[in-house]
């Protein structure tokens, strides 16, 4: 083909790494690489979703009663917060495409604020579970009435198997916890990105791709929550 570049010539573009011929090839590589990484993440969460599906399917009533302790309102607010943060993130990428530096920083900061809001709400949710001894392990609640109130009973009889309820909370803490870890990682990555924008690092200002990659990661975190929300918070009563 046409482009025969001498290796010693690293191009005029300092954002271009030596192994690439041109910036287009580099950008494509980064985006494809990010997607390949995200497919790994899909399988990572996917295995957990599978375990959840299996146990949920087996212990429908117990999971339903256990889920009654979760607060749908808080979950819905958290979903909105994450959706909004996805929006601000995509606006940051758009601003990066248009090379509006201050807009990028502003949108990214908004995204971080959303992420922190999400974590704060999550903190309150977790503490209400822990207060009611609904954390998995040796100290798990033994009194179904104290933990789930009247929901735990059907026709005057205990309807919930506390073992299965514990399994539910094991998965709840496991999956939302892993998701929260991803959020925290996302916050750190976005902070690093903001710093690069603030110091006008050429690696981000010359091209929008690095911002786009962080964006892809952030949307993926949102994507996971989009499924976690209906699965954990919106269970139908077995009927």
């Amino acid at each position: 083909m046409s482009a025969i570049t001498n290796t010693s010539d690293h191009g005029h573009d300092s954002a271009l790494h030596h192994q690439f011929e041109d910036i287009g090839q580099q950008n494509d590589s980064y985006i494809v690489g990010m997607w390949v990484f995200l497919s790994t993440e899909v399988m990572f969460f996917g295995a957990l979703f599978f375990i959840y599906t299996l146990y949920r399917w087996n212990y429908q009533l117990d999971f339903y009663i256990a889920h009654e302790h979760l607060d749908v309102k808080l979950g819905a607010i958290n979903t909105s917060v994450l959706l909004f943060s996805s929006f601000t993130m995509v606006m940051a990428v758009q601003s990066a495409q248009l090379k509006r530096r201050l807009h990028v920083i502003g949108y990214l900061l908004t995204t971080i604020v959303c992420a922190c809001t999400f974590l704060v709400i999550k903190y309150f949710e977790y503490s209400s579970k822990i207060a009611d001894h609904l954390y998995p392990g040796a100290g798990f609640a033994t009194d179904a009435h104290a933990a789930f109130g009247a929901h735990a009973f059907e026709a005057g009889k205990l309807a919930v198997n506390m073992n299965h309820a514990q399994l539910f909370y094991a998965l709840y803490f496991g999956m939302t916890g892993l998701h929260a870890v991803h959020i925290i990682a996302g916050i750190l990555v976005i902070l690093a990105l903001i710093r690069l924008w603030v110091i006008r690092a050429k690696s981000v200002t010359l091209d929008y791709i690095p911002t786009e990659m962080v964006g892809l990661y952030w949307h993926f975190v949102d994507l996971v929550w989009i499924f976690l929300f209906p699965l954990f918070y919106l269970m139908p009563k077995p009927h």
Partner: peptide, 9 residues
């Protein structure tokens, strides 16, 4: 890429 994450989790 597609199998390792399963054993990881």
């Amino acid at each position: 890429i597609l199998a390792t994450p399963v054993v990881a989790i």
